[in-house]
Amino acid sequence: MWILALEDLSNLDAVMECKPDAVCIGLAPLAARSHACVQIEELPEMVKRFHQHDIQLLINAQGMIEQSQLANVRNLFHQAIDTGVDGFYIADDGYIHLADEYGNQIGRDLRQLLIIQPETLLCSGQDANFYLEQGLQAASLSHELTLDEIVACAQDCSNAKNLEVLISGHYSWMESRRPLIENYLRYIKRQDAFEQNKVYTIQEQMRDARLLTWQDDQGTHIMSDLPIQAGSDLCAIADSGIERFRIDAFLKSNEWGIEMLQTYRKILEHSPNENSIESNLKQEETLIRKEKTNVRH
């Protein structure tokens, strides 16, 4: 299953033409890390539009739910379900109970609409399996796994086809509830330089990578400097039984996402085009002992 998470709502005709199996957009204000957000009133039309092209519509609802937001989240979640969307990416376990609660009201199993995607936290087939056995539609593996670990996850999972892997796109390195950028600029008396939702970069003083970062109503987000790329490792991932591959165009463009989708399709068909993508999946497992790493601090 090819899933394309959109950068924005432009050029949707071209998106539909490239025929992903599913498209992911954000639902304001439930989404996290999405520029492709719609309001709830706009969702029915979106569902209709994508369904007409036999494309599933998945919703980014990856914001963490604060207690004070619960009533509003519940309301929007119910309304979104009623529009006929095909799934929700969630990062907060609270959605599982919300799904149960509404499912009991309307006589449906709504857990099968949920895709657990906490960015990290799912580093084993066993933990992913937990959510699948709870009846969720899919579980998205953490992005810091090596290829061998991804394959091992699939082997340890009773239903590997419902595992999902981000094969292309930027991914989260840190999520904070704190308004870190604004706080800093206020501290150095440069409030004038702060703009909500603007993408800045931060670069650690002894490193080269410039990490993409911004602040919005949910807090501060830090993303990878480079998009992850599975490259030809996608074949091994697919061979392991995993069937859900996500391309995330966030911070790129829908055109970029379309290009990646087309390229990766060819890679999986074992007919890579001239510009085949080199895998930058982690080569070595993360370690836990300081003395074994090359830490410059």
Binding site: M64, M174, E175, I288
Partner: peptide, 25 residues
């Protein structure tokens, strides 16, 4: 923790030390 606990991989990617397995730098 500055991040939502468990949702930070800065250490993982900057030092290869796993924050979620006791190696947070």
């Amino acid at each position: 923790c500055i991040s939502f606990s468990g949702r930070c991989v800065l250490s993982n990617h900057m030092t290869n030390r796993d924050a979620n397995r006791g190696g947070c730098a």
